[in-house]
Simulated assay, not measured.
Amino acid sequence: MSHNKSVEALRTPDERFENLPDFDYPVSYTEDLAGYEGLRAAWIDVGPKDADQVFLCLHGEPSWSFLYRRMIPVFLESGARVVAPDLLGFGRSDKPVNQSDYGFHFHRDYLLALVERLNLKNITLVVQDWGGILGLTLPVDQSFKARLSRLLVMNTGLGIGKSPSDGFLAWKSYALSTRDLPIGELIARGTPHLTDAEIAAYDAPFPGPQYKAGAQIFPALVPVSPDMEGVDVSLAAADFWSKEWTGKSFMAIGDADPVLGPAVMENLRRLIKGCPPAMMVEGGGHFVQEWGDPIARAALESFGAQ
């Protein structure tokens, strides 16, 4: 499906990404991804190409693949391959400047196209926030379903036409009304152990407000009412996870997340067939990958024991 109707986009200068703390991985780029020709997509692809498992790490809003820097080394230690894409509008990927160019299927189809392009197999799907809102719907697509073997899910949900919390509504309103979102500061607010260099790395993709159309509009795209784009495929995904899923699952919850915290996540856990009790990350905020080393280790141990 082609989404590129001559989308106007900005490209963050590469020098903005120099000297990133603990994230010195080679970057892959393409400008001819099927359906997105002319837009530069960026992703990290590390570890053996013929590894038995591929960890597909999907970030959310308003972060980027840098979010996974505490988990990637643990996955690599296990001998796996790790692929961590930047959604269009985020990270090193190009940033469409018009909010109208962003949509649920624009991003979902991008992920499907990238998985097809890289021909990933034996995927351990690793998701949080929008990474899960999109990522949890991918197995509705038959070709992705055949590639999927395990799930590692953190602070996220399915967009089935209901608002997850009052905290979410407040966040949506704030994001839409704030053109120059203070990205690094927002992420640091619930992640007190971030260094100044790490906060700067979260700001790096966005040299100015004109780069932040995606960060602004994403909360408003969450399918929270029945008529919104993405509800149908999210309902189909709920059906898949509750009835068809037979793979291994692991859930970790940042218990200090005011938007997608323990109550929301426990509902999701009950939906996922065979999902064992969640790992509760005490004091963990919404961006729970920032507590990612012990989560990644616990997930690998759980997968081995299941």
Rank of each mutant, 00 (worst) to 15 (best):
N4Y: 08
K5A: 10
V7S: 04
V7D: 05
L10R: 03
R11F: 05
R11V: 12
T12W: 02
P13W: 05
D14N: 06
E15V: 11
F17Q: 08
E18Y: 14
E18N: 14
N19P: 03
D22H: 07
F23M: 12
Y25D: 12
P26Y: 11
Y29W: 06
T30I: 01
A34G: 09
Y36A: 05
Y36F: 12
E37N: 11
G38H: 13
G38E: 04
A41S: 15
A42V: 06
P48M: 13
Q53M: 04
F55N: 07
L56H: 06
C57F: 13
G60Y: 03
G60C: 11
P62K: 14
S63R: 03
R69T: 05
R69M: 08
R70T: 11
R70G: 10
F75I: 02
E77I: 09
E77F: 06
A80K: 06
A80V: 03
A80H: 01
A80M: 02
A80W: 02
V82W: 06
V83M: 10
V83E: 01
D86W: 11
L87H: 09
L87P: 14
L87V: 06
G89N: 07
F90A: 11
F90N: 02
R92N: 03
P96L: 10
Q99F: 13
Y102R: 06
F104W: 05
F104D: 05
H105W: 05
H105C: 08
H107F: 05
L111S: 00
V115Y: 13
N122R: 14
V126L: 13
V126Q: 10
V127L: 12
D129S: 12
L134T: 11
L136T: 00
Q142Y: 14
A146E: 15
L148P: 00
S149N: 14
R150E: 08
N155L: 14
G157Y: 14
G159T: 00
I160R: 04
D166P: 12
F168W: 09
W171R: 06
S177M: 10
R179P: 06
D180Y: 08
P182N: 02
I187N: 08
I187E: 00
I187C: 09
I187V: 00
I187R: 04
A188G: 15
A188C: 09
R189Y: 13
T191G: 07
H193M: 09
L194I: 02
T195M: 08
D203Y: 05
P205C: 02
F206E: 02
P209E: 12
K212D: 12
K212G: 07
Q216C: 11
P219F: 07
P219R: 15
P219K: 12
S225G: 09
D227I: 09
M228L: 08
E229D: 10
G230P: 00
G230I: 05
D232V: 01
V233R: 00
S234C: 05
L235R: 04
D239I: 01
S242I: 01
E244Y: 07
E244N: 07
S249K: 04
S249L: 08
A252V: 00
D257C: 12
G261F: 07
P262Y: 00
A263P: 13
N267L: 13
L268H: 01
L268K: 03
R269P: 08
R269M: 04
L271T: 03
K273A: 08
C275F: 10
M280E: 03
E282I: 09
G284V: 01
G284H: 10
F287G: 02
Q289Y: 09
D293T: 14
D293S: 08
A296M: 09
S302R: 11
